[in-house]
Structure formats: structure tokens, C-alpha cells
Amino acid sequence: MTVAIEENRVRFSELRMEGVTRRFGPAVALDRIDLRIKGGEFLALLGPSGCGKSTALNCLAGLLPLSAGEIWLDEERIDGLPPERREFGMVFQNYALFPHLSVRKNVAFGLAVRRMGKAETARRVDDALRLVELTEHAHKLPGQLSGGQQQRVAIARAVVLRPRLVLMDEPLSNLDAKLRVQMRTEIRRMHQDLGLTTVYVTHDQEEALALADRVVVLRDGRIEQSGTPEEVYTYPSSTYIAGFMGYRNLLEMPVVSKDGGRVTIADRELRLTGVPQEKITGAHAVAAVRPEDFRLADGTSEKRNLLTVRVEVSEFHGREVAAEGVTGDGHVVHFRLPERVAPGSRVELTVPEERVLVFGESPGPEED
């Protein structure tokens, strides 16, 4: 496997999408996307259904022509090249394996298309099967494998070509929760061991944060935010990003004070002070709070950011309870606690000011 690893090392410095646009009739799926991907980087395109992430991947792969813009690989313009000349590998959501071919022949298929010699093909396929730990299943048909094993075959088929770029389109969405976590680790390990450059499409923020060196969040065909997982998770640039990255509580209320780098917003029975993420100029603002940042007030807590809620729903999640409560003035609050709380009970919660992010915009309609 050492030979395969060495020959898969990074083969370009930078891929650039410049003004990339894709239209389907009057609908704009991608709107002037500018994006740079470094060789060796693991980049996740993140967003809900319809945001343009799979369209971007298909444009990179050459499966969709651009309506406008250019794609460059170092000094080579590639948006006019057919897919087979881009030397990219692709892993699809539905695996796309040939059901009548064995695992070995599925993995070897792309090499056969390239008319590679039998000896070199056998060596490469052996390396790829060892990499995904499927050597003993080489003779089986895809229908005889589990979903996780089929996905490993699809990955082996992509990396056996020693691609310049690996494109993955929601590759784990058909697997159960346990397998998703296991395959996530395997994909990251292969990316590192083989020195791959990977673009990974997902709607799952946890998956993107765990895998990627950089996360690009798309919205309506445009880039809403780009940064390291830590940056996007900790410092969302808008209420849209905040909601998508786990800030389930987006509470819009009138602004009552701005003082010392803090903003306070309040309703009749709910008052929150937090850290502004942008200049707050309007009469209303939005407080974004993660459910896990709430805790039960114990009487010794600071008097700011105290709220009383009536528990509506309480779900047992092992070491913690996920609950939904309502304040006296009707604000719905999602919170997670190590303590059990019963529906119908009233609890007093608190949240540190530094855990409350304040935006000067309405969250708007919820995205699909």
C-alpha cells in the first residue's frame, strides 16, 4: 500500500471557481460562485436541499455545463473538458455500483475504460481493496454486501484511479447512524493517508464539522459563509448560519440597551443580554442561543439572563434531556440539561452572556 499512497499525493496547488453560474431555465441554481480549493484540502459544501451544493459538485465533475464563469486547475482551464479528461473521482449517494459485477470488477472498471494493463490493474485494485478492508469480499456481488461495505467499494473505485480531486455527494446519507460515524472516520483517514483533495457535499452540519478542514455554507446558490469548522460553529455570520449550525433558539425582541460591548433585548417576560455579531441599528434584534448552553438556575447565578419556562416536551437522550419550553409571553425555548424535567413543570433557566449571540436581522422564513 505504500506505493499507492505515494502515487496519490497532492497533484495540484489550487482549484479555482470564478464566477461560476448555473441556470435551469429561469431558475438560478448557482449564482456567481467564487471559490478557491487548495491541493490537499478537505472542503465541505454544506446546506439544505436546493441550496446549490450538488449542482456545484456536478459542475466541478463536468456532469453539468456552466451557464457562466470558469473553472481552473492551477493554470489549466478545465470547465470545457469532458468528465473523463478531468481526472476526478466521484462517490455518489446511491453508490452506483454495477450489480452484475464482482467487487473486484467494480473497482477495476475505470481502469479497464482507460485500457490499463492487467498487471498494473491487479496491483492497483489489490491496493484499493486493502485500503478499504474488503480484500476478502473481492469475489462477492454488491447485493451480497452491507450498505457500509457497498460504500467502501464506491470509495475504492474512486481512489483506484488516483484522481486529482475526489468529489463526494452525500455519500453517507443512506447508512444508519452507527455506520455513518464509522465511515466518517474512514473517509477522513483515507483523505489523510492518500494525500487526497476532497470536496464533500452534505446537509449534515455535524458531518461537515467532523470531516472538513474548511466548511462552505451555501444558501440560494450563493456562498453565505466560508471558514474553518471552528469559525463557522463559533462565529456564524448571520441568523441563517446560526440556525443551520445548531443555534435552535432564534429569539427576536425589541432592543432595550446597548452598553459596553453588550446588547440587551427584551419582551414582557423574557430579557437576554448578549454579544453583538454585527452593528445593531434597528429597533429589533435576534438572540441566538444553543440548547446546550442553557443550564438550570441555582439561586447563586448572576441575575441577568434568567428565564422561566413551562416544559412542553421532554425527551430522554441518555446522559441528558432535550426539552422544549414556553415563556410566559409565548417564546418557544429549546434546551438540553443533564437533569430530568417533566412536561408541565416550570423551570428557571440561565445562559451566560458570552453564549448569547445578537444579530440585527430577522431569521426570516425557515429553509427546507
Rank of each mutant, 00 (worst) to 15 (best):
E324A: 10
G62P: 08
P171Y: 10
S226C: 02
G69Q: 07
S257G: 03
G364V: 05
E207I: 07
R214G: 03
G117D: 14
F294K: 03
E87W: 05
T281S: 11
V347R: 02
D267Q: 08
A108K: 06
L270M: 02
Q144D: 04
D127E: 14
I33W: 01
S102C: 06
R16M: 08
Y247S: 06
E136V: 11
V201N: 00
V347A: 02
L97N: 07
A208R: 11
T2D: 13
T135L: 15
E70P: 01
V91H: 00
G40Y: 01
F109P: 07
R355G: 15
P291L: 06
R355L: 12
V201D: 00
S54D: 12
H100V: 04
D298N: 13
A297N: 14
R23N: 12
M1F: 10
A27M: 13
F244P: 05
N8C: 15
F42I: 05
P343H: 04
T273V: 03
A297R: 10
G246L: 09
W72H: 12
L167I: 03
G344Q: 10
Y200L: 06
E70Q: 10
V321I: 13
E269F: 13
D126E: 11
R152Q: 06
E84H: 15
R310A: 00
L306H: 08
D293P: 11
M245S: 03
M168D: 10
P254T: 12
T2I: 14
E269Y: 12
L251C: 03
P142W: 13
F109H: 06
E231Q: 15
M183R: 09
S237I: 11
A27Y: 06
C59A: 14
L179T: 06
G243Y: 04
A322Y: 13
D79M: 01
P48G: 13
H137P: 06
M245T: 14
N174L: 08
L179D: 02
F98S: 08
V28G: 03
S238L: 06
R304S: 14
V103W: 01
L15R: 02
P26I: 10
V159S: 05
T350K: 06
P48F: 05
L218C: 11
L165Q: 09
T202V: 12
P338H: 09
T197L: 08
